[in-house]
Amino acid sequence: MFISIKRIFQIAIMILKRQGLATFAMIFVIAITCLQVSSMFLLGKISQSLILDLEEKVDISVYLKMGTSEEDIFSIKEKLSQAPQVKKIEYVSSEEAREIFIERHKDDLLLMESLVQVGNPFLASLNIKAFMPDHYEEIANLLENSSFRDLVEKVDYYQRKPVIERIFAITSGINKALLFLSLVLGSLTILITFNTIRLATYSLREEIEIERLVGASDWFIRGPFLLQGGISGLLAFLISLSILSLACFFLTPQLKALFPDLSLFSCFGENFFSILLIQFLTGTGLGVFSSFIATRKYLKI
């Protein structure tokens, strides 16, 4: 037992030495696959957080008529929060609305002056966030048909409808495109990997057949190749991890300019262990599995 493990290691090292170029090609394609899979994963994470950010910014406001009592407003709020579509309701009194306005425009002296003259023109409002994008329409309809519709001055959903719809069209578009891209690229790289490894092992056909004929067992022949595949996969994993880390590090400032809220490198950091695992499994898995498939073909005799 021990001696055959020793032999398998010896032969694997011999293969690695003699098949330098083929091993190099194998490491190269596996590394590309690892990179592709893990960067797709990272891209997915990033777009997810961007989409969340966008969705977080979407809400509708229900403005209530001047002079509606807080009591009424709270009962409306109570009723609305029972609707299954509503995720969060926030009450902004006219006083608070005024403060927010002042905070935002405090440098505009002219505006501030006229505000003093007008008093408080702001309506109290309820800010509503829904669970799903298409819930906003339903909530707007709900308000339209409710008993308290006379208290509602306006619902700004109708003004903002086109913006909201565009945002959701874009985000679902991004998701679909990402999925499509990773499917296409994924199958492409796996195809290339298998082909490269098949070519790399093709020259071994004759040797494997001879080895079978002089009495080597399947595992004695296959073991070294699986080991070679595993080692290549491991190297590919290390290479692709370093490339991805470096790429994230150097691309972070550039992306910051485009999306100020996004830090690529911290996103990489947060998902480091998932990425590590994904790359490790892709690398060694692909290395061992493709060696297994490649040798299986030649072990028929």
């Binding site: 032999r7 080895e211 002089v214 004695f220």
Partner: peptide
């Protein structure tokens, strides 16, 4: 040597 390695010779 290969045929001897195969049978686990030292």
């Amino acid at each position: 040597a290969y045929v001897m390695k195969v049978i686990g010779a030292s």
